[in-house]
Design a binder for these strands. Structure first.
Lengths: 343, 343
DNA sequence: TTGAAAGCGCTAACAC
DNA sequence: GTGTTAGCGCTTTCAA
């Protein structure tokens, strides 16, 4: 297919050394004379020699590549995480093989198979379904280092994620402190088997002695403002309407904001809304969005460090580590005190 | 590192056949008996055999992987493109190696080197600088199929991109038709050596007989709402202020919207603004954004098809193909007629 | 300090 | 139909 690329052998032939010497020289071995090295390096540069990493991988039994599998990257926060991961990995000499599951476990299994076939040295994965992890945990059978980018309950794998439950609780408490008691939640967690945010929300209500109400808990599968709008239709149909909404991601929150614009509700005067993720755009929403956020670089950093550590450990078994980073409320304009005359 | 994975040899030993027969059987060759195949497949399944793609790549001299290099993916439209590309490639049996240049040519060169080292079969690249393409064009020396995801002027490579110039012209014409004559542009193209949008803007003015004014042309390097705000500070300092703004990307437009909010300008009554890219959230901006957009899937589809075609062509040289997809104005709320009493 | 030989896990060419 | 041999481009013993 491609023009025959120069091999070690070729530059060996042109310089008169053996392939072994050439290999040693190019890798900066101290065994080889400076003079020899120079000769060899020149010859290599002249033909634009680039070592074949594939051959290298085969003999060394390591590919210096890792697999990154995400659900989908329509959520900008995942995008930023992915980019940070790639940058860090690249600095450490690793390539990243990228795959998406589109939130489908079958796709995920396929992606994982492909990555294993390519003999990646490790895997970073944001699982499609936090309750169906068997195929991921099975990677351990081959001692393939893996870290989960989400805190799946009871996972026997390394985890680096965000304190979702606590973040959700803080968000809800923020609303409660503003005087709200009828607080709706739009949650997408169940979709991937993740009840963390819902739990955090319930924690906060319980702690404040507020009874939870099924009519205020809406579950939506996906990540899109449309779903936020749909949820609002249901939420505001209740006879005792909420005065505040906790949207489990910023996209939902935008949908809520949009619903309010369409229905003439003022935010935060008529309705408070808080989001989750703090995507860059949330500052520019119809009403600048109060939300709870984290630093994707921090997440990426921990995940990469841990994965690389596991890879370097080799066979030495280490107990799975569970790491979670903090979330912080970013106060903007979409939440405010409950009005006296409010429902 | 990893527990020794089963090899062809192992399952050959366990079944009593030769490695060759096993290889043939597992690849579904008609040469091998059904009975034999079945035996072999069972044995393979039992040990969870997964062919080593690295070894395969080495002997077949093709990796069935392609390199995708982007500048950075903070622009959601690039994100969508990337995801679409990965999905399509995966369906065709290709893995995608992902790299980012962060808009830095040095990084780009490094990424390209890494990809070549890994012997990718082809490269899809959104170049950091549309005027510095030499290192990319050099890939042709090794007959490494490459398609550019942006229309660099005078490139000797295959290109799949959007009709930026025309899109920019249409956007500006839209503003002109609304009665605006003082139209500002915030352009980021120069940053990557791309004057397409600026050209389109000038085309439209010229066509309408409106003199262009340097004071209305602001160049900003990057992709962020902040830059849009900064640009507005400069734009609105002119003694003859613009009544409409063409922002060369949606992030800039959000900055403009925010500036207006801060300065008490109503959009579109006091100022019209049109963006570029139609990122998902533009519908949820402070004022729903009128912008010009395209379908990233269409772009991805063309690029992948072309690249795969080039790869399958092998050495047969084909003239570079230049493809551009159409853009369409998405009318929302941020543009309106120029008011009589407006400056 | 350098070279020869073996081998990573697979496919391809050729026997039988 | 199935086995044997060679070889992809490298690194890794082991000699010299």
């Amino acid at each position: 297919m491609n023009r025959p690329r120069p091999r070690l052998k070729d530059i060996a032939a042109s310089t008169g050394f053996s392939t072994n010497t050439v290999s040693l020289a190019l890798r900066g071995s101290p065994l080889v004379t400076d003079e020899t090295r120079q000769l060899i390096e020149e010859a290599a540069a002249k033909v634009n020699y680039q070592p074949n990493e594939i051959a290298k991988s085969l003999v060394q039994r390591q590919s210096r590549s890792i697999g990154l599998v995400l659900t989908n990257i329509t959520n900008p926060i995942l995008t930023h995480t992915a980019q940070a991961i790639e940058t860090m990995l690249s600095k450490r000499g690793y390539s990243t093989l990228f795959a998406t599951s589109d939130n489908n476990v079958e796709n995920e299994i396929q992606a994982l198979d492909a990555l294993q076939g390519r003999r990646v040295d490790g895997i970073l994965i944001f699982p499609a379904d936090h309750h169906r992890l068997a195929h991921i945990e099975r990677l351990n059978n081959f001692h393939l280092p893996t870290v989960l980018l989400a805190s799946a309950p009871g996972a026997t794998l390394d985890v680096v994620s965000v304190k979702e439950r606590q973040g959700a609780r803080d968000a809800t408490i923020h609303l409660i402190q503003l005087g709200h008691t009828r607080i709706g939640i739009i949650d997408s967690g169940h979709w991937m088997g993740n009840a963390q945010k819902l739990q955090g929300y319930l924690d906060a209500l319980a702690q404040a002695g507020i009874a939870s109400d099924e009519a205020l808990i809406i579950k939506k599968s996906g990540y899109s403002p449309n779903l936020g709008r749909e949820a609002m239709d249901e939420l505001m149909a209740a006879k005792d309407q909420p005065t505040a909404i906790f949207a489990s991601n910023d996209a939902f929150a935008f949908g809520v904001l949009d619903w309010c614009r369409m229905h003439g509700l003022a935010v935060p005067e008529d309705l408070s809304v808080i989001g989750f993720d703090n995507i860059e755009f949330s500052a520019y929403a119809a009403t600048p969005l109060t939300t709870v956020g984290y630093d994707p670089k921090e997440l990426a950093g921990l995940a990469v460090e841990r994965l690389l550590y596991l890879i370097e450990q080799g066979d030495a078994q280490t107990a799975p580590l569970f790491q979670q980073i903090d979330l912080e409320i970013v106060l903007r304009k979409s939440t405010g005190p409950r009005r006296e005359n409010q429902s």
